[in-house]
């Protein structure tokens, strides 16, 4: 190997460090944790990453553009509630008995409107996205609670529930949906002009604007995409739980955020790849699975998540020091 090839290899490893961490973790768990090394466990890990994974894409797109969306969790919850309410077959629902595709379209449009709502205040009124979406975080879950008067909804349309229970070969349909969404959005971010604009706008808004990129339009679409993805995750969560409960998905925002950071997306904007975010989501899911298996007190979970975030940030700082030497 020439020096250039060595440098390229090292660069590639550093750019994909989350995957190496994931592989190392899975290997260690497989050899040390009894009962870990079997397909149902791996499948469960993947299934577990579906909701965090999709929310993490929404969050990653916002963070790549140097904004933040704290409302993703509440949009997910609202979407699940609306889905369950419209498609519920029990007395606790709307009585409309809508089918899967109809509810999906409704919640996706709702997600887009919420994204537009967020972006109006962020882009037009120039209010910090942290503040705007913090308000959204409070508002959207509350709307869901008001719709169902704080009750849960159980038993929804069978075609929705089927999405969560269908397997294609050994792989759950949910996991395939997750993978397809990741592939689509990875290609979108890395290969399309608009995807590159998201990076540029996050990296240096002035340079992007100077280059004629409509930065306001880019940010508006970023928040719309975030809303739609969160709503989709909520719909899938309703399918998974065959309904909705008031506390559905509580705390998932922080898991999504952790997956994004562990996956190597920089909070400074313009840096990171979705493949890393996927690895980040699976890392978190593997850890919680292991904690379940070995019967560790689940309260340790957040300590481990916190530690993972710190390690990820430290690692990022180290990589940033090494990288300049690799050009």
């Amino acid at each position: 190997m020439t020096i250039i090839q060595k440098k390229e290899t090292l660069k590639w490893i550093l750019d994909n460090i989350a995957w190496f961490i994931l592989l190392a973790m899975l290997t260690i768990f497989s050899f040390t944790v009894k009962g870990f090394a079997q397909w149902p466990i791996y499948r469960n890990i993947l299934y577990h990453s579906v909701f965090v994974g999709i929310l993490a894409i929404a969050e990653a797109i916002c963070i790549l553009s140097k904004e933040m969306d704290l409302s993703v969790e509440s949009v997910l919850a609202l979407s699940a509630v609306v889905t369950a309410y419209l498609a519920g077959i029990g007395l606790d629902a709307s009585g409309l008995h809508l089918n899967g595709p109809t509810t999906l379209i409704i919640v996706l449009i709702m997600g887009a409107i919420i994204g537009l709502f967020n972006s109006y205040f962020i882009v037009r009124m120039k209010i910090n996205s942290f503040i705007v979406t913090l308000a959204g975080y409070l508002i959207f879950r509350a709307i869901g609670l008001i719709i169902t008067k704080g009750h849960g909804v159980v038993n929804i349309s069978k075609d929705i529930v089927a999405v969560a229970r269908t397997n294609i070969g050994p792989i759950p349909l949910m996991v395939i949906i997750l993978l397809v969404i990741y592939v689509i959005f990875s290609l979108f971010l890395s290969k399309t002009q608009f995807g590159r604009f998201i990076y540029f706008v996050g990296d240096n808004r002035e340079a992007s604007y100077n280059a004629g990129i409509k930065t306001d339009r880019v940010l508006t679409i970023v928040f719309i995409m975030s809303g739609v993805l969160s709503a989709l995750a909520g719909w899938l969560l309703a399918a998974r739980t065959n309904g909705s409960s008031p506390s559905l998905g509580q705390g998932i925002l922080f898991e999504a955020m952790a997956a994004v950071v562990i996956g190597g997306v920089s909070l400074q904007g313009g840096v990171g790849k979705l493949s890393g975010v996927f690895a980040g989501a699976v890392i978190l899911s593997s850890i919680s699975t292991v904690i379940n298996i070995v019967n560790i007190n689940p309260y340790y979970m957040n300590i481990i998540r916190g530690a993972m975030i710190i390690i990820a940030v430290l690692l990022d700082a180290i990589i940033r020091k090494i990288r300049p030497k690799l050009i």
Binding site: R196, D203, N204, N210, G212, G270
Partner: peptide
């Protein structure tokens, strides 16, 4: 300190807003 996208590559900065597609 002319603004550039520091995390984007040289060629991306060169073609920014005028990408060949």
């Amino acid at each position: 300190n002319s603004p550039v996208c520091i995390n984007a590559t040289v060629y991306e900065n060169f073609y920014i807003g005028r990408e060949l597609v």
